[in-house]
C-alpha cells in the first residue's frame, strides 16, 4: 500500500493536522491562507482509512506554527481534528480542535433582516456556540442558528 510511507513521512518543525473529515483538507488549507506560494513544504493525505472517522484527511506543514484564529477556523470545519505541534521531529504538543465559545468576524448570519448584514453599520457578526455535537452556532444579534452544514458551506465557498 502506498498509504504507509505517506503517513510516516516526518517533518522536522511544523504542524500536523490529523483526523480531518475526508475531503476537507483543501478547504482547511485555504482557510489557513496556504496557497503553496508561501514556500512551506506541505503534505496532504486524503481519504485514508481511519478508525474514528471511516476515512479522513491529514495535512502536514513544515515550518508552520498555527495562530489561535487558525485553530478556531479549523475547529469549525473539522471539529474532530487533532493538531500536533512538531519540534525536532517529535510531537511536543497535541490538542483537539475545539470550536471556540464565541466566533467573531468570519462567518455571516443567514438572516437578511439581521443588523450584522447591513453594509453601512460597523458591526462584526458574532456567534455563540450553542452545541458542539452536532455543531450549532447562534447569532448573538438575531438568535438565528447556523448548522454545521451552513458553516461548512460558508467556509468552503471562500474565494
Amino acid at each position: 500500500m502506498a498509504e504507509k510511507p505517506l503517513l510516516v513521512a516526518k517533518i522536522r518543525n511544523g504542524t500536523i493536522i490529523d483526523h480531518i473529515p475526508a475531503g476537507r483538507a483543501l478547504s482547511i488549507l485555504r482557510l489557513m491562507g496556504i496557497t503553496g506560494k508561501e514556500g512551506f513544504t506541505v503534505a496532504i493525505v486524503m481519504n485514508v482509512e481511519s478508525r474514528k472517522l471511516g476515512r479522513k484527511d491529514i495535512i502536514k506543514v513544515e515550518g508552520l506554527e498555527l495562530r489561535p484564529e487558525d485553530t478556531d477556523k479549523i475547529a469549525l470545519l473539522a471539529p474532530m481534528a487533532t493538531i500536533n505541534v512538531v519540534k525536532d521531529y517529535a510531537v511536543v504538543e497535541k490538542r483537539k480542535a475545539v470550536p471556540p465559545k464565541i466566533v467573531e468576524g468570519f462567518l455571516r448570519c443567514k438572516n437578511p433582516n439581521c443588523i450584522t448584514n447591513q453594509k453601512n453599520e460597523p458591526v462584526k457578526p458574532r456567534f455563540i456556540t450553542a452545541s458542539y455535537d452536532p455543531l450549532k452556532l447562534v447569532c448573538d444579534y438575531c438568535s438565528l442558528a447556523l448548522t454545521f452544514d451552513d458553516i461548512a458551506r460558508q467556509l468552503e465557498s471562500r474565494p
Binding site: I115, Q118, V123, D140, Y141
Partner: peptide, 10 residues
C-alpha cells in the same frame, strides 16, 4: 425601535 433584528443590541 427598529425593524431589524439585533438593532437594539448593537
Amino acid at each position: 425601535r427598529h425593524r431589524l433584528e439585533g438593532a437594539a443590541k448593537l
